[in-house]
């Protein structure tokens, strides 16, 4: 589904990603872990199409298409979803209104007619329940005045509504208490199918107790320096990132 080869990216002339290689197949969950400043968030931003980053080398192919040539909206329409580490507040834009517009533009891109109002509302209800999001929150302005946990749940709610092929969860666990973490993880797990894939970006192993990855990759100084299965995450938790630094340094 996703194939990243030798990806280099920089911001303001400073190179952050220095040759990332990653293959993600349908049905898989990949975790990308790494210390602060290793390039985790840059990777998610580059995949989602943030214009501030320059891709200087390498390629990203998503379902046969060159992802890097697509606008952010076309990436979303092709089925890439980024759950933001810091979801943006948009006063005055209602959550529901914006999702309705998003969904109809995605459907138009795929040559589908707009969804019937009642089907849309049914979908909203169903997906809200999935992340235990109150109806009133769905009707409020996007993320405005939401608590940290509500914002993250709202990200997963949007993900559920848009039903992407590839979901990238950028530090979705940051700032979440254990109850909110369970709700979010539970939502992600319920959305998991054999056809879609998930990349979980996280600093801590804890989230991976709830969203169990098939593969764990360690990102350090802009490269994936170690890959393994879920046991690698436990090892990292136990030994800290220093052991990676020592291994790489050695």
């Amino acid at each position: 589904m996703l194939s990243i080869k030798n990806l280099h990216a920089s911001i303001d002339g400073k190179e952050i990603l220095r040759g990332i290689n990653l293959e993600v197949k349908a049905g898989e969950i990949h975790a990308i872990m790494g210390p602060n400043g290793s390039g985790k968030s840059t990777l998610s931003a580059v995949l989602a199409g943030r214009e501030a980053y320059d891709v200087t080398e390498g390629e990203v192919v998503f379902n046969g298409k060159n992802l890097l040539e697509l606008s952010p909206e076309d990436r979303a329409r092709e089925g890439v979803f980024l759950a933001f580490q810091y979801p943006i507040e948009i006063p005055g834009v209602s959550n529901i209104n914006f999702l309705k517009t998003a969904l109809s533009e995605i459907r138009a891109y795929k040559g589908l007619p707009p969804m019937e109002a009642k089907d849309f509302l049914k979908l909203v209800k169903e997906k809200q329940a999935l992340v235990e999001l109150q109806g009133s929150l769905a009707n409020r302005s996007v993320n405005e005045g939401f608590s940290g946990g509500e914002k993250k749940r709202n990200e997963i709610f949007q993900m559920a509504m848009l039903n992407p092929m590839l979901s990238i969860l950028d530090e979705t666990d940051s700032g979440l208490d254990i109850d909110a973490l369970r709700i979010v993880a539970n939502g992600v797990n319920k959305l998991k199918t054999k056809e879609n894939a998930t990349i979980v970006i996280t600093h801590y192993q804890r989230l991976l107790d709830y969203i169990v990855p098939d593969f764990v990759h360690v990102l350090y100084k802009g490269q994936i320096v170690k890959s393994g299965t879920k046991e690698l995450a436990l090892e990292l938790e136990e030994k800290g990132y220093d052991f990676i630094k020592e291994e790489v340094g050695a």
Binding site: A48, R50, A76, F84, I88, N97, F98, T101, A102, I106
Partner: peptide
């Protein structure tokens, strides 16, 4: 960017804002 990342065109994102 947030709106575009959800599939809205740049024009409709700006219009909405």
């Amino acid at each position: 960017f947030y709106l575009r990342a959800r599939g809205l065109s740049e024009a409709s994102a700006k219009k909405l804002l």
